[in-house]
Write a protein that binds this DNA or RNA. Sequence first.
DNA 1: ATAGCGCCCTGGTGGC
DNA 2: TGCCACCAGGGCGCTA
Length: 310
Amino acid sequence: MPELPEVETLRRGLEKKIQGRRIVDIEITNAKVLKGQTETAFLERTRNGRISRLDRRGKYLLATLETNGSENATTPVKTNVAKIIAANSPAPAESAGERENPPVFLCIHLKMRGSLRVHAAEEPIEPYHCLTLRLDNGDELRYHDMWTWGEIRALTGEELSKVAGLAAMGPEPLSENWGGLELAAGVGKRRGPIKPMLLDQKTVAGVGNIYADESLFRSGIHPERSAGTLTPEEFDRLAREIRTVLTEAIDGGGSMGDYVDAAGSAGRFEPKVYDRGGKACCNCGTRLEKIRLGGRGTAFCPTCQPKIKI
DNA sequence: ATAGCGCCCTGGTGGC
DNA sequence: TGCCACCAGGGCGCTA
């Protein structure tokens, strides 16, 4: 399942492979992934767009499409996606005389089973294909999604700033000044178990089930610990472990399992507790427990993560 | 306000 | 061995 490290790995791969390319043709075989946007609107907005940059916000992948004519292909990008999302501010006024079209944003969320890969045109279409963007160098960016839970839409800056999940998204855990204080602030006055709060994208951006379990294990914090009882030291430790585990996973090209990057390579990051319920803790040998918490499978070590703070 | 649940979807798995 | 019911899971929208 793509979480922050997987989306970041994908973003970096796509940056190398498709940044600067122009979309010359689009093929949609499963319009469900447009999540209500009409095929006509998607086609009109993406055709002939030049992919000028690739950004990530939480688990969202955002591609900026410059839609001005090819004669202006070298015009520097002026729009900062992050600012649009963060400030919900109007796009900067264009200087008089310039006739640039406003950029379009491909707003992509892979959810559980989505994948985005660059293929050579002659490679056969794989099962669960939903959408292809054909590029000006002959390559094809193909979106596959077994469950069609994912989404890919072509939005204006205004529309993008109103995407609920983006507008309400919490801070990036790998940003320079994110730490225990910011994590505690994200949790706020809520008193429930800590783990579901880590999955809440308003608390911190990009953490999903794998990295929530892993960071709690590494911090020695029980997933059911009431967030209200965490000490400042524990928030510091948890925030530090979130950063460490996300960084390690990015360095490993994402988690092992179903996930593949833009080139189709599998990730190398191996979780220590996630999906290992019933197996031995790599740290102490205790049998890892598996519970359901907030509707999600949760694995932890009852020895390394005592329920009561020691 | 906020927490909890159902929904979307289909391959894999566990039980018989 | 084969079949089938059920489980997993991110995020949204609805309910209590």
